[in-house]
């Protein structure tokens, strides 16, 4: 089957369109332990994330509400999917690795432990070709990390 949108797919893969259109984790948590807002003043994208910890300190659940483009919503949703069940330290490491991938398209410093979650985030690697869109992909992560670190506001600046 040929795809008449071949020329548009490199950034907007089906996974991104799907998560952008129907995010699974786009909700405010009823009870939560941490929350933060993220704001990209350049393009007006806004996000709020909530985090609930398990007794062992791992992320039991996370949800978000976002106003923004397909890339930023899809990235927030894939992020939520990926970090649930992970420790704070893992999530921080994943954030660094993802940020590198969004900026450069590759992640030379990523170790094997991160291979599986990064694969899930891989569809977003295409943003590296659009420098002005990289921040759309990383905004949710900035907000999440701010929440984990006890902050309230994050900016993808």
């Amino acid at each position: 089957m040929t795809d008449t949108f071949d020329d548009l797919r490199d950034l907007y893969q089906e996974v991104i369109l799907d998560h952008g259109r129907r995010p699974r984790h786009a909700r405010r948590l009823e009870s939560f332990d941490a929350t933060a807002k993220g704001d990209n003043p350049m393009c007006g994208d806004r996000i709020e994330v909530w985090v609930k910890y398990a007794p062992d300190g791992t992320i039991a659940d996370t949800g978000f509400q976002a106003r923004g483009c397909a890339i930023s919503v899809a990235s927030a949703d894939l992020m939520a999917e990926t970090v649930i069940g992970r420790s704070k330290a893992d999530t921080h490491a994943l954030f660094e690795a993802f940020r590198e991938m969004a900026r450069t398209g590759k992640c030379p410093h990523c170790d094997a432990a991160l291979a599986e979650p990064l694969e899930r985030l891989e569809p977003l690697a295409g943003v590296h070709e659009y420098p002005s869109r990289v921040k759309c992909a990383t905004l949710a992560w900035h907000a999440l990390v701010a929440a984990l670190d006890g902050g309230k506001e994050a900016s993808s600046e």
Binding site: D7, L8, D10, L11, Y12, M42, C43, G44, G68, C69, A70, I71, Y130, R133, C136
Partner: peptide, 20 residues
């Protein structure tokens, strides 16, 4: 469709518009 997605997808087709 968000304006930024529209602009990026038009850019893919060679069209420069502003979004924001």
């Amino acid at each position: 469709a968000h304006a930024h997605d529209v602009a990026t997808l038009l850019d893919r087709q060679g069209i420069a518009v502003r979004a924001g």
